[in-house]
Design a protein around this nucleic acid. Structure first.
Lengths: 221, 221, 221, 221
DNA sequence: CATGAATGAGATTTCATTCAT
DNA sequence: TATGAATGAAATCTCATTCAT
């Protein structure tokens, strides 16, 4: 008994990293959950495992996020907020339409390349037919600014006759996303089927070039 | 969709379900499993539920497929075999390159449209980084014949100057698949985000046209 | 259909080994069951596995032996019948007591050495506190003739003063069995604990000598 | 017997069983498992039953011991630790060799008599060919101190000419164990076969005497 | 705020045995 | 006699969540 009390008092000002710092605890949990859900899917992710990864008591997850679904939703929201905050930094209003479009395509491609967890969450959410996303007010209001950027580029490009007319910016946005997303998220499966290593750095680079060519090739008037 | 996988061989003189027709039992289980896994994901699918849907004793699933993973692999293999067997029927050797390419793109789009279970399985498998597919000898040997068809069309098109040169057929195949797959599998999520119903028949048709335009637009020399 | 019929007629006088030969089928099942139960214990033995080992339809096991317990009992009875039939061949009535005792001890030791399945069944039966054995009329009546032989040797030896007096033949029989049985059936465990390979041929031979020495040493007047 | 393994540390101010005392919970599970496995064998023991006996949620078994095999291993280790801890209390260094040997034989016999669960676990482990024991680091380190004691007694006895020379202490230890173990664990089977109640108290006492006589008789120079 | 032991519901899997042919 | 598909009961194990401290 005595020793147990002693041990408690022996940690006077918070010895270990995460205790008594709500913000930090929340962030640590979120990061661990993202990694776990990304790696194993929503169904495969284990609350125990997330707590362990985060170095946090399991009870804290329920304290901060209500339940597993709430945690997943928070992960989803954080992921969307991050990509949107990055997108917003793109300023293409003054750029030449062709160059602007190239940059935009490359931005999307690079973001996907560097954030596999976003692809994974997107895929997971699709399997659930957007069940969670629909519930999130936050995310529904986070429209991608890219659609606006695309619209602007398309109009300016059409006016100067470097782009074809009548291109739907939403369709184009979807296509740009599609060309990157599908390759990256299916690369393992596709490598298996085609017997060609699509995960190698050279293959990735080649895909980046192909992507730009497809979009710009299509947009030629 | 799922039912397409099943019930090929009708039991000759027996109307209802479960008795002493191994082929049929196997097929019925496979169909039920496809539906269940497609609807709820691999983790969410319940063996009990599959058995009930199939009108079959749960034990039979283990008898025929070993375990849940084995069942999933069989579902995957059946799905791939079906799409490959449809693809093989396409005969474009004598067609005009542009018309042939249009048909090929439309075939892919239509197959995806009519077989949501295939998209779902593809997405599930991606989340697992092709873990199951890799194990399947059968599937690894089922290279899509479309790549060959694309290669032939590209060469003939390049020769008659209706297509650009130096297009990688595998990259193009991936792009064609991507443009259809991403739209269809993400339509719920995208509808949520864009506040625009991408699941409506008119939206679907418009996407079909867009898809053809992107591919053919890009291929122009 | 036609081919199926043809195939049936193509085996006019019993092509394969075990069909339509009740005696043989029974024996084959018994051998397979002995091996399986011996290897995995009664609880670990699988009826399916036994049928497969025997190359016989599972249904046959139930036909010939009623159920799994019936099969186990048959295995037990067969094992006891075999050892008793071997024991009965020993004829030591005219032998010198010391030499006779030595031979008797060696016989027991050698039988155990050469019939590990008997040891295994004995151990299994002990764990069940003789539950099955008690039910078997056959076995209860199969008294070991060794006790009689021991009694005779002890009396003759006591009379000629080469053996001590007042030795209980049943106790001695149990001791002889014990000294061999325990070593052989525990050799793996004992090897683990003592870090000394008691399964090596030299170790086995040494144990045979030790056993004789203990018994004869004890019997000295 | 089994209860001896449990409840070492009494929960200070809580009368009944299950709440928030990890050590106690672990011990209670271990005791229940020992009883259940001892009574029905490893294959026959039911996790549900163990949980119920222990008055503990089934989930706790997996929490503390991983799985059924882990639980069995823990039971095995606890049983070995108990016998070794009793053995270690024997101090025969100063005793007369003959008297010391007698005490040692009686200790072994009495321990077996009073701890049928140990015999049962030993037999179970033998059927598995030491598969579990081999995995246990703990047990391999528990070399029996008895071997050392025996060695010392044998040397001193040989020097004073009360024991024969060249006796292998490991062989002798195995024989001492064998003479007790076989009788006790086979008493039901042997009673059945010999038609003589070997489980009666008088029979047990007689066996104890016989055992000492065999060992000391053998050791006479 | 923080801990981790404890829980109940339900998941997958196993198995001896029976049934239709 | 023989087959092997089919069954139901029950086994082991999992997991999100709550409770006592």
């Amino acid at each position: 008994m005595a020793t147990a009390l002693a041990a408690k008092k022996a940690a006077p000002k918070r010895a270990n990293g995460n205790a008594r710092d709500p913000e930090r605890t929340r962030a640590v949990i979120l990061a661990a959950a993202t990694a776990e859900i990304t790696a194993k899917g929503l169904g495969g992710a284990r609350v125990d495992e997330i707590a362990e990864r985060a170095g946090v008591n399991k009870r804290m997850i329920y304290h901060y996020f209500g339940d597993k679904d709430g945690l997943y939703l928070a992960v989803l929201e954080a992921a969307y907020q991050l990509i949107r905050s990055e997108e917003i930094k793109l300023d293409l209003k003054q750029r030449d339409p062709v160059e602007g479009m190239r940059e935009l395509v490359q931005f999307t491609w690079n973001y996907y390349r560097l954030h596999p967890e976003f692809l994974s969450l997107l895929a997971t959410e699709n399997l659930h037919r957007s069940a969670y996303l629909k519930r999130s007010k936050k995310i529904r209001e986070l429209h991608s600014p890219l659609v606006g950027l695309i619209e602007d580029l398309l109009q300016r490009g059409a006016k100067t006759k470097v782009f074809r007319k009548d291109v739907d910016p939403v369709e184009l946005y979807i296509s740009i996303a599609a060309l990157g997303f599908f390759y990256l998220s299916n690369r393992y499966t596709l490598s298996t089927i085609f017997g060609r290593d699509l995960t190698a750095p050279d293959s990735i680079k080649a895909r980046g070039r192909h992507l730009v060519e497809v979009v710009l090739g299509y947009l030629r008037p």
